[in-house]
Design a protein around this nucleic acid. Structure first.
Lengths: 139, 139
DNA sequence: ATAATATACTTGCACAATCAAGCATCAATC
DNA sequence: GATTGATGCTTGATTGTGCAAGTATATTAT
């Protein structure tokens, strides 16, 4: 892992690292019956003001396209982890709300993922973890 | 972007950041007619000893499955950017070699990507870029 | 009020990537 | 030297995701 351009190496190294991370996370989360993307959705919803977000907000929050979110939500709705609601002010938006069972699944999955994430960054000291977070936040 | 578990936030933030990066890189590289994954393949080949790697080595280098590499190489072979060779010692392995035109395309794409990567990490000072690379290398 | 534009989705189609299964070849053991 | 197991790769079926186009609603300009 070394060449002419250090910026290229840094970026390629990172892409490889995080694609591997997602695969491992997927494996861990599969015991809860959800994928990494689905976990991201639940996580954002759980953090949101009323456990409620529009599909577009969700798309931005998890880095997917609008259609990606539409399709990702279909199974979650069928599993009843998530409910569809309307926005009184704007009939275009279709709000997504975390259901009670959704919250339960999320709590379990969050513990699994939290443990995984901690292990993943464990090679760094707390100090280094902070530094990393700060540096990434600037990009 | 803030919750209970800093490890979770760090990891989710990173995943989002790098998935966005790949999309932007794809857009930049499209002027050369190749995707980010294809650029990664060409890049690894260009760096390799004889511009030659087995498909498995390639898969590990770019973080894809073996079948992913097989399918990714098909268009590259048709475009004649890459050639199939045999390994005298082991008839199972099918080596991939960067062709002359492949090198040409790679050089162009590499310039584009190098510029993009530099811009991408430009918000950090050189010192910070080094720190980031070191931290990521530990993960 | 009407028209023009923009936003929030959804759907059809295409493509990328995976896994599981299979084939060919090599390596190790008996 | 035959069998057993591992490795390298390809193919079929499936899944995830995106883009382009379409619909419905909202907003802005006229």
């Amino acid at each position: 892992m070394d060449t002419q351009n250090p910026a290229v190496d840094l970026v390629l190294q990172s892409a490889l690292l995080w694609s591997g991370m997602i695969k491992k996370a997927d494996a861990q989360l599969s015991v809860h019956g959800i994928s990494f993307s689905e976990y991201c959705i639940l996580h954002r919803l759980a953090q949101a003001p009323q456990q409620r977000l529009s599909r577009i907000e969700l798309a931005n929050a998890v880095g997917l396209s609008a259609s990606g979110v539409t399709r990702l939500l279909q199974p979650l709705e069928k599993m009843l982890l998530v409910e569809k609601e309307q926005n009184a002010r704007d009939a275009r938006v279709s709000l997504v709300k975390l259901s009670d069972s959704g919250q339960q699944i999320y709590r379990d999955a969050h513990q699994t993922f939290g443990f995984f994430a901690s292990q993943f960054i464990a090679p760094l000291t707390s100090r280094q973890q902070e530094t990393l977070a700060e540096l990434l936040a600037r990009l």
